[in-house]
Computed example of a mutant assay.
Amino acid sequence: MKYLTLITLFFSVMLMAQVEEDSELFLQMKQLDSVVFEVGFNQCNLSPTEALLTDDFEFYHDIGGIQNKAEFIAAMKKNICGNPKTNLTRKLIKGSMEVFPLSANNELYGAIQRGEHEFYRQADGQENKKTGYAKFTSYWELQNNEWKLKRTFSFDHRAAH
């Protein structure tokens, strides 16, 4: 019985392993990450990002607290896009992103995306300077064959070295 439990646990972990970087799911998550961060955060075009968020979206930040969808978008407008003299950017750390599929009865219903990113600031034409680092974990849900961002955890924020 003990060995059967170990074998079952082993195969359960194998089924929940992260997907390969060239898999369709990984590439979809990478593209969605780009919409949230490259388009939304870096270019301050928040409409595509807002469209990806579920109505009950929640953002958990280890410094800023908890925000719902409206609060998250308002904070992005004010804190990230609100000062035209300061250009904030986020870059995904190459090789840090992992994607884990979530299935029920062999049916894909969601994915966990996690990774690490760095933040940069360019003020008044100065050189782009790395200012920070953080980790993130996001829960994406498949709703009517469309990926929607439902929960995001942003944590382990540190100043750049």
Rank of each mutant, 00 (worst) to 15 (best):
M29G: 01
K30H: 03
R114I: 09
K30I: 01
S96G: 10
N144I: 01
Y120N: 00
Q113P: 08
L27A: 05
Q122S: 13
A111F: 04
L46H: 07
Q143E: 14
G40A: 06
S154Y: 14
Q43K: 13
I7Q: 05
N105Y: 13
S154V: 14
N42S: 06
E141V: 11
I63H: 12
N106D: 15
V99S: 01
T54E: 08
K129R: 12
L92W: 00
K94C: 10
S138D: 12
T86K: 15
H157Y: 07
A123D: 12
T137F: 05
T8L: 15
K148P: 02
V19W: 00
E127S: 14
G115Q: 02
A70V: 14
P48T: 08
T152K: 01
L4W: 13
V36H: 03
Q67S: 11
E107C: 09
N45T: 07
K135G: 06
N68W: 04
T131E: 11
H61F: 08
I80C: 00
E20M: 03
E118A: 13
F11S: 11
A51P: 00
A159L: 13
S154M: 14
Y133H: 13
N68S: 11
E21F: 01
I93V: 15
K130V: 02
A75D: 09
Q143G: 10
M16A: 14
N42W: 05
D124C: 10
H157Q: 10
M14T: 10
S47V: 14
K150R: 15
V19P: 00
A17V: 03
Q18R: 07
M29K: 03
